[in-house]
Nucleic acid binder design. Structure first.
Length: 327
DNA sequence: AATGGATGCAACCGCGGCGCT
DNA sequence: CAGCGCCGCGGTTGCATCCAT
């Protein structure tokens, strides 16, 4: 007897989401917050299963998502974390704010994996393919996707909150009492500096080669667009994402969106110190939201996001809308 | 300009974990 | 403690777009 499907699939829509569906989902979650996903489609008037709604929200509609290519540092993080955690994409994603497990997984499979192979590095073991071949002959029992047991010095490159069940027997590397979902940017930034210094030579050589490869890395300075012009509807950017970012240090403080588990560190300009100043909402997204939410001609509904006010995307929610759920 | 393969990404599927009864 | 239901995760698929010919 198989497991029952998560939802009654009869009459439910599948495939790409339409703007209308996005609008309904955004509207519902902005009004009610994230609650029982199973109930969401019915309450929001969607012919989707709850799972599909959750996926759409977490992977695409969530306002705290970064869009666009992973930065050099993010890619570096992914590789290092993958070496320690294996294919545990959600764990890896939890260390990269604004990135989803799906996005990282896709990026790994389509970009990083290919690059590593091209350079003769086994993307599973993170070791030279020749070494891996020798080892696989010597140790045929080794499981694929098994998190690589790094040498102690490399384990310290980035402290990763290990799942207890994956914890090494001694458990010495664990940082206790640290909420896994709250990404400590300042810590990572500091770690990044240390990491760069203590990175093992093999990994460093990989990275040097990796990031001088054919894929152009977009520098933050290239992403940042003067705010005064970024709100212009005649923006020349053809991309629907990452066209501009807020750099207001108080932006997230203004938002007050507990549901997204904002860390105080998001308000910290330490990010800027790392020359990777990014805000997680871009004008295009905000504009899309406004369109989605306001295009029904309902004069009563206020504009949710005012992209022109103060030159930054700013949340102007009526208090009633945020009174429910976790908002 | 047409076409077919390659690529990238959004979305789906099925399973495991966890909490509740 | 077992059964049930929900959520989240990781693997996979399908489709749109890109690119070479």
């Amino acid at each position: 007897m198989g497991r029952q499907p998560c939802c009654d699939k009869v009459g439910l829509k599948k495939g790409p989401w339409t703007a209308e569906e996005d609008k309904k989902l955004i509207n519902f979650i902005l009004t009610n917050g994230q609650c029982c996903w199973r109930a969401v489609p019915k309450l929001a008037g969607l012919l989707r299963c709850g799972k599909s709604c959750r996926l759409r929200w977490t992977n695409y509609l969530r306002p705290d998502l970064k869009r666009g290519l992973l930065s050099e540092y993010e890619e570096k993080m992914v590789i290092d974390l993958h070496a320690q955690l294996g294919n545990r994409w959600s764990k890896i994603a939890s260390h990269l704010p604004g990135r989803t497990d799906n996005e990282i997984k896709n990026h790994w499979n389509t970009h990083i994996k290919k690059k590593l192979k091209k350079m003769g590095i086994d993307p599973v073991t993170h070791k030279s393919l020749s070494i891996t071949t020798e080892q696989s002959q010597a140790q045929p029992d080794q499981q694929p996707n098994q998190p690589l047991q790094e040498p102690q010095d490399q384990q310290q490159a980035i402290q990763v909150e290990e799942d207890p069940k994956f914890e090494p027997e001694n458990g010495q590397n664990k940082e206790p009492e640290k909420a896994e979902t709250s990404f400590d940017v300042s810590t990572i930034t500091e770690e990044a500096k240390e990491e760069d210094q203590i990175m093992i030579p093999l990994f460093e050589s990989i990275m040097n080669e990796l990031f001088t490869d054919e894929v152009p890395i977009i520098e933050p300075s290239e992403i940042l667009v003067p705010s005064a012009t970024s709100t212009s509807p005649t923006t020349t950017s053809s991309s629907t994402s990452s066209s501009s970012y807020s750099n207001s240090p108080n932006f997230f403080e203004d938002l007050q969106l507990p549901d997204f588990d904002w860390s105080d560190d998001y308000n910290d300009t330490k990010i800027d110190n790392n020359n990777s100043s990014v805000a997680l909402w871009d004008d295009d997204l905000i504009r899309s939201w406004n369109m989605l939410i306001n295009d029904d001609g309902d004069g009563d509904r206020k504009q949710v996001f005012d992209t022109s006010a103060n030159q930054y995307p700013r949340l102007i929610m009526d208090s009633e809308s945020w009174a429910y759920g976790l908002f």
